[in-house]
Structures are given as C-alpha cells and as structure tokens.
Write a protein that binds this DNA or RNA. Structure first.
Length: 671
DNA sequence: GTGTGACAATTTTTT
DNA sequence: ATTGTCACAC
C-alpha cells in the first residue's frame, strides 16, 4: 500500500494530524476513530518528508501495541527505514537508556531487573528482618506503597508509617547493593540520568527529535517527567489519547497529563478525532449520553460513520446464573440460526469472579470460549525458577534469584544453613554468592553442608562460563538444558505435581524457556539481552486474546482497544459497576468511563444485563440496578425482563408465527 | 522437606 | 465458594 493512498483514505481531522509534524500536538482520539491508523500514517509521513528514522521515537504502554505500531508503519514505508525506527514501551526505552549510561548513577551496567515475585520475596525478607511480622504487614501492600511513593517522586523514607519507611529504605539499599533495579526504578533512574547529566540528555534529545506517545491518558507523573527530560526544543512531541478512556487511575495513571497538556507544552495543535468507524449510531448515542455525565473532561462527542443500527437492550435478570445461561443460550441461537461465528461475540464484566458463571454456562452449552488473564506464562513457578537460574548465571551477586533457587531442587542446603549464610554475608558486607565462596563462612557450616555448597558453586561457575564466554560456540539453550538435567530440575518439578495434566503443563513451561533461549542464542543475542527481553515480557505472544478462537469472556479493563460485532455487558449493578469501593475512593467517574469503554466495544449489537440476586462469597445477596442506567439515552434502548423473554420464547415454540409477531410488537417498537 | 487444616480475604493489571 | 497463606505435625 502506497502512502499517498493512505493519506487520501483519511478524514480531514486525521489528515490534519498526519501533516502536522512540528511542535507539540495533542490528538484526542475517541474510541474507534482510527487512532492507530492516524499515528502510523503520521510516522510514515515523517519519513516521507525526509526525517531520518533514527530520529523518530514512538512510545507505547504495552509490547503488543509497540509491535502492532511498528508492523503497520513498516507496511507503509521502506523496509530498511522502518527497522531504524524506535518503537517501544516506556520500560523498554528506559532499559535501553540505562544499559548505556547507568554507570553515571553509580550502578554497574550489568544490573539485574527484579520483577514481581523477586520484589515480593525481598520485601518479605525485610519485613522479617525489621520485625514487622507480628504487625500483620503484607509484603504486597508494602511493595505497592513503595511503588506509589517512587512514582510520585518522593524520598524512600517518606511514608506515614515509620516501619514502612524503614523497610522502604532497606529495600532501596538492598537493591542498590545487589546492583538490581525494579520496574519503577527503570523509570526513576532513566529520568534522573537525563535530568542530572546534561551530556546524556543532549545526546538523547538530539537523537529523538520526533516523539509520539500513545495512550497518553495512561501515563503517570513519572512518565511525564521523563518525557519532559527527553523532549528537547522545538518540542516535536505528539501525544495521542482519550481522557474518556482513562481507566487505570488506580495504578497511578494521571489523567491530568492529558487534560492539562497545554501546561507542559503551551499552544499545542489540538486535533479532535470524533468520527467513529466502529459502532452503529445507536451504540454511540448511548455511549455519548453516558460519558457526558463526567465533569472536567475534554468536550467531545463520538460521531457515527455508520448511521442507524439496532437498539441496545437492557435486560433485568433474576439471578447471576440465569444471566449467564441466558447469554449462553442466546449466543448458541445466534450462532446456529444467524450463522454468526463465535468470534463475533464478547461478554464483558467488571471483576474476574464474574467469569465463573459465564464459563460454566459456556461449557454447559458446548460453546468454545476464550478468557483473558488466567495464569500467565511468566508467573508460573517453574518458569520463574529457571529464569532465576539464568539471572544468577548472568549476575551471581544478585541475591534474590540466587536465594530463590539455592535449595530448589533440594541439594542439602536447608533453611538453617541459608539463614547462616545470609547472616554471614550481611556481617561481612558481601553478597550471598561471595559468602558461599568465603573460607571463613564455609568453616561455620557442617562438613556435609559445606560439601553441598561447594558442589553447587562449582557447577554454577562452570555453567556460567559456558553461558557468558563470547568465544564459546555452544548454544545457550543447550547449555541450560544440560544444566537442568544435571540438577534433575525436571524430575523435581514432576514429583511435586499431583495430576498428569499439571505434569505436562509444567514440563512444557521448562521446555519453552529452553526453546526461547535457544532461539535467542541462535540469533546471536547475549544472555543479558535475553534476560531484558524476558523481564520486559517482550516475547509474550502465547496468550494473545485476539488470536484465540471462540466467544471472548473478558474484563472491561482488558477489553480496551478491542471490538466485537455483538457485545454483552453483565452485572450492571451498584456495587459491581460502579464497584463498591469506588464510592469511598471517589472514583465513580472512572467506573463510568469503564462502562463507556465497554459500550464502545460494540460494533452492531449491545446487550446490558443486571440481576436482582447474585451469589457473592457463597451468599445470595440482593442487588439493585446500576446508577449509570438512568444516565443512558433510552431513545436507543429497549428494556426487557427475563421472565417476559423466556415466557415469550416458550410460547413461540407452541404457536410460532402468531406469538413471535405479537412479541415483536410488544418488545420492539422499532419502525 | 512435605502434607494437613485452620484462617482470612475477595476490583481492575502492564512492565 | 474459592483461593491462598501460614503454622504445625509427621
């Protein structure tokens, strides 16, 4: 596809966005208004105008959108030029920046990235060490406080609770001595590096002359600060987003970034993308009627490209089981009678719990379905263990991965010995790895344990050299495989499995890591590059919801960016949507946006349901319909009752033609 | 080092 | 109802 063809296929606002390359640009792109197409065309246009691809940076929030954006730009431009573009996530960008210059902040360049369970493990340890165990202090909670603090740019000791401040400080110190950084640090340190080192800043500002930020409503304060450092004069920064789709406030996203963009970059060109190519007019009218109840938003309205459309339905259900069954049955019918493929349907819900009923109903009707979430590849224990081994090989001085696998599988270094070694390492101000090679420390251990420790360090050292030696022609995947066999890692994992199914899944997990590493090795990647990729989850394509078959069961949050011809949105009840906690937290607006996102997923048909009763934690409780329902424009909605529909259907079977026409007259007052 | 039972918690989730 | 965590026993 040639680029001029693309340009002519854009609407006026989109063209305006594409051709405005200089100075700050704010693109307010409503749902379904061709945002990605506009942004990718804009970047293609840059290259056509002679801007060097090396000078172009596009930052996204997820790897998925980074990959998509790159692919779509590459389809429009010269292959070679496309490869020279920088299209990546915030975190990936920070890793690149830091691998170059983190030494200027006193870290070594081979820093380790601690993620997820690494962080939790470390905090758990620190809670114990600081004597907060009896205080019911939860590691995850502490961690989220630490994270929030970092993202707000506060000092680590700035916490309401003294003990938390203690732990936060110790956490920072610990990461520092282990030459490790967490996900937040990637951002914090990259920002600091740019702010404190003019030379680094100058180089990067000169390199990235044209910057695009996608999903700008999801950025937080820290990401904004990083951008401020990265964007140099004449401020060729283009941000794209939609304040009405800001649904990640709970995770730090700061919607004022997009609302007050002018404060950071005065007199931007503001472009409104309002023509929606996705949904019917009816769907958009309802969506518009809801979202205008939010105050302090940027005024805009989705304008339908496709006129008319089926009215939306709101159906009251007696209980959550009927709700699920009704939907499953209807999907079944629509598939059978109207020949709609399963992939046309989606069922959206607020909380993951709600998927239970739905899954059960789908299974009962033999409807193929796909669910997002579940357990992701990288959270699997065996995968994390193997990754810990690799992290340790790369940098044995990082205690966290080392401690994770020190006795997994068991090799005669028990809890007591581990405690002794860690204590000894702290006393001597050395890493655990160094302590294990220290004669004095070894002398404190029993002969048996000492032998185990030496056997372990010897094996690790030998494997480590084979993995890191650039002159070694061996494939890293093969080295890992051999190592895992030597320690009988697979056997240990198998033994801990209860079912055959589990055995299979776990073995697969281990096998996959080996395969990934083998591939990376074949492509000439170093262990460091492989670990970065894995930490940033850049290889994650195993659970791409769009590639799976069947009816899509998905949370409202995860549905953002997707679209479906026929959508069901369940549980429109106070306490669920808006969620119970949002009242107290003052985030009802965000719940409204969440519903807005849900409605705008639908292309043709939209059905919303609420229940009178719902099973909650084993108890059957009464529910009332959502406050949001009365905000909707009922000109484009028909209301139904479960009993009536079922009654009508039952009759239909007996006296098909008569009752169905009567039913039409009663229920649908369309022309 | 692994298995059992009591006990609490229970929105959304990427990197 | 379900799921995970933790203490304790074997």
């Amino acid at each position: 596809m040639s680029e001029s063809f693309s340009l002519s296929s854009l609407n006026e606002a989109q063209r305006d966005a594409v051709s405005t390359l200089d100075g700050p640009v704010l693109i307010l792109a409503g749902a379904g208004t061709g945002k990605t197409r506009t942004v990718t065309c804009r970047i293609a246009h840059m290259l056509k105008k002679g801007i060097a691809p090396q000078n172009v940076l596009a930052v996204t929030f997820t790897n998925k959108s980074a990959v998509e954006m790159r692919e779509r730009v590459c389809a429009m431009v010269d292959k070679k030029a496309g490869k020279l573009l920088t299209v990546c996530t915030f975190h990936s960008l920070c890793v690149r920046i830091l691998r170059e210059g983190i030494d200027k902040l006193g870290y070594k360049k081979n820093f380790t990235i601690y993620a997820g369970s690494d962080q939790v493990g470390l905090v758990k340890q620190l809670i114990v060490r600081k004597g907060g165990k009896d205080l019911n202090l939860d590691a995850m909670q502490v961690l989220s406080m630490i994270s929030k603090n970092k993202n707000e740019g506060l000092a680590p000791d700035y916490h309401a609770d003294d003990l938390v401040a203690e732990i936060a400080k110790a956490y920072e110190a610990e990461l520092r001595t282990q030459n490790a950084v967490d996900f937040d640090d990637l951002m914090v340190l990259a920002e600091r590096l740019l702010r404190e080192h003019e030379d680094v800043r100058a180089v990067l500002q000169d390199k990235y002359r044209y910057i695009t930020v996608d999903e700008f409503q999801d950025t937080n304060g820290l990401q904004m600060k990083l951008l401020k450092q990265l964007v140099g004069k004449p401020f060729n920064i283009c941000v794209v987003g939609d304040d009405d789709q800001s649904i990640y406030g709970w995770r730090g996203a700061d919607v004022t970034n997009i609302l007050q963009f002018e404060k950071h970059y005065p007199n931007p060109k503001v472009i409104l993308l309002e023509v929606n190519y996705r949904s019917s007019a009816a769907v958009l009218h309802v969506a518009n009627s809801l979202i205008k109840n939010n105050i302090g938003r940027r005024e805009k309205e989705l304008k339908p490209h496709h006129p008319g459309g089926e009215k939306l339905r709101i159906i009251s259900m007696p209980g959550d089981e009927e709700e699920a069954e009704f939907i499953a049955e209807e999907i079944m019918e629509r598939h059978r009678v109207n020949k709609k493929p399963w992939e046309d349907f989606a069922v959206l819900f607020r909380t993951n719990q709600q998927s239970r009923n739905l899954e059960a109903a789908m299974r009962a009707f033999d409807i193929p379905y796909r669910v997002v979430g579940a357990q992701s590849f990288f959270d699997k224990k065996e995968v994390r263990d193997v990754m810990a081994y690799l992290q340790m090989f790369y940098n044995p001085l990082s205690d966290v991965p080392l401690l994770r696998i020190l006795n997994a599988p068991p090799r005669g270094i028990g809890q007591g010995s581990i405690l002794l070694i860690t204590e000894a390492s702290r006393e001597r101000e050395m890493s655990v790895w160094e302590a294990m090679a220290n004669e004095e420390v070894l002398a404190e251990l029993s002969t048996k344990v000492k032998k185990s420790v030496i056997a372990f360090t010897d094996l690790v050292t030998e494997t480590r050299h084979r993995l890191l030696d650039q002159n070694n022609r061996e494939n890293m995947g093969d080295v890992l495989k051999e190592f895992l066999e030597t320690i009988d890692f697979g056997g240990w994992v198998q033994r801990s499995c209860k079912t055959d199914n589990e055995k299979e899944k776990r073995a697969e997990g281990i096998h996959d890591v080996v395969d990934y590493l083998r591939d990376a090795s074949r492509q000439g990647k170093t262990l460091s590059q492989f670990l970065d990729r894995m930490a940033l989850q850049e290889d994650r394509n195993d659970d791409d919801i769009e590639k799976q078959k069947g009816v899509c069961l998905i949370t409202l949050h995860a549905s953002k960016g997707l679209e479906f011809p026929i959508v069901y949105l369940v549980g429109l009840e106070n306490g669920i949507l808006p969620h119970k906690r949002s009242q107290a937290e003052g985030t009802v607006d965000e719940e409204r946006r969440l519903l807005y996102v849900g409605i705008t997923r639908a292309q043709d048909e939209m059905t919303m349901t609420y229940c009178s009763y719902r099973s909650k934690y084993g108890e059957r409780v009464h529910c009332e319909s959502s406050i949001f329902i009365k905000e909707l424009d009922f000109e484009h909605i028909t209301e139904h009752d479960y009993e009536d529909i079922m009654g009508a259907e039952a009759s239909e079977e007996e006296q098909e033609s008569f009752f169905s026409s009567l039913n039409d007259m009663l229920d649908d007052d369309e022309d």
